[in-house]
Amino acid sequence: MINQSNTLAFYNSNAHSFIEQTIDVNMSLLYQPFIDNLPVRPISNQNILDLGCGSGRDSMHFANLGFNVTAIDSSSALLDLAKAAAQKRMDYQDTIEWHCATFQDIIQKNWQRQFTAIWACASLLHVPYKELPELIDGLLHMLTDDGVFYASFKYSDNEHVKDNRFFCDMNEKRWETIKQKTNHEFKDKIWLTNDQRADRDEKWFNIMIKR
């Protein structure tokens, strides 16, 4: 099992700069297909799990639309700054429930069928490839029967370490292998997008799962 402590240490040590780089990135090209695929229910009855919330950018966006949001991050430094940003930027920051927890912590929680959607934007990419099928199975247990799961990875076919952070990349072949190893049946759609940060020239592999 790959030691994730270096990745976590990076985010705790670089929380301020990471938030500055990400909190104002325009994510509308990803928000819309996600929202379009949500179950047909009143917004106030929908619970979104923001998995690896980072700057809190996406949690704040969904909460501003009226969704109930549970924001998770394993970096206490990032989570504290995200909460502070929400207090400054939102009138109703109490619509976000914040938790400092790892992915494995979340799997142990009694959250079966609690969420109509899971948003995992650039977060599962820190999980080793061989661990993803079991983790995805555990997360799918948390979705309602009509729930939606979005995830994104850097587009490639390997695992690597950059700036002391571990990255698991994804492509079509790797994703097909993961699907065969999960215990859930689901429909999925995959597509590529460009990084929305001005100083990046990377492609991202996007996945939309519907139960």
Results as ranks from 00 to 15, higher is better:
residue 8 L to S: 02
residue 14 N to I: 02
residue 16 H to K: 08
residue 22 T to I: 06
residue 23 I to H: 05
residue 25 V to E: 07
residue 27 M to C: 02
residue 28 S to D: 00
residue 29 L to M: 05
residue 36 D to G: 11
residue 39 P to T: 09
residue 40 V to N: 14
residue 41 R to C: 00
residue 41 R to A: 09
residue 43 I to F: 10
residue 46 Q to S: 03
residue 48 I to S: 04
residue 50 D to V: 06
residue 55 S to Y: 15
residue 55 S to P: 14
residue 55 S to D: 13
residue 55 S to M: 14
residue 56 G to P: 10
residue 64 N to D: 11
residue 68 N to I: 08
residue 70 T to V: 15
residue 70 T to Q: 15
residue 71 A to F: 07
residue 74 S to H: 07
residue 79 L to Y: 01
residue 83 K to F: 14
residue 85 A to R: 15
residue 88 K to C: 05
residue 90 M to S: 01
residue 91 D to T: 03
residue 92 Y to M: 09
residue 94 D to M: 09
residue 96 I to L: 08
residue 96 I to D: 09
residue 97 E to L: 06
residue 102 T to L: 00
residue 103 F to N: 00
residue 106 I to M: 15
residue 106 I to C: 15
residue 106 I to P: 12
residue 107 I to R: 09
residue 108 Q to N: 08
residue 110 N to M: 10
residue 114 Q to G: 07
residue 115 F to A: 03
residue 115 F to S: 02
residue 116 T to G: 13
residue 117 A to V: 01
residue 127 V to W: 12
residue 132 L to S: 09
residue 133 P to I: 04
residue 134 E to Q: 13
residue 138 G to P: 01
residue 139 L to T: 03
residue 141 H to I: 09
residue 142 M to I: 04
residue 145 D to V: 02
residue 146 D to H: 12
residue 147 G to D: 09
residue 149 F to T: 03
residue 152 S to V: 09
residue 155 Y to K: 12
residue 157 D to Y: 04
residue 158 N to I: 08
residue 159 E to S: 14
residue 159 E to Q: 15
residue 163 D to P: 04
residue 163 D to M: 03
residue 166 F to Q: 02
residue 167 F to M: 05
residue 173 K to T: 14
residue 175 W to E: 14
residue 182 T to S: 10
residue 183 N to S: 11
residue 185 E to F: 15
residue 186 F to S: 01
residue 189 K to C: 10
residue 190 I to E: 12
residue 191 W to N: 12
residue 193 T to S: 14
residue 193 T to H: 12
residue 193 T to A: 12
residue 195 D to S: 13
residue 197 R to C: 07
residue 199 D to L: 11
residue 203 K to Q: 14
residue 206 N to M: 08
residue 207 I to R: 01
residue 207 I to G: 02
residue 208 M to H: 10
residue 209 I to D: 01
residue 210 K to M: 04
residue 210 K to S: 04
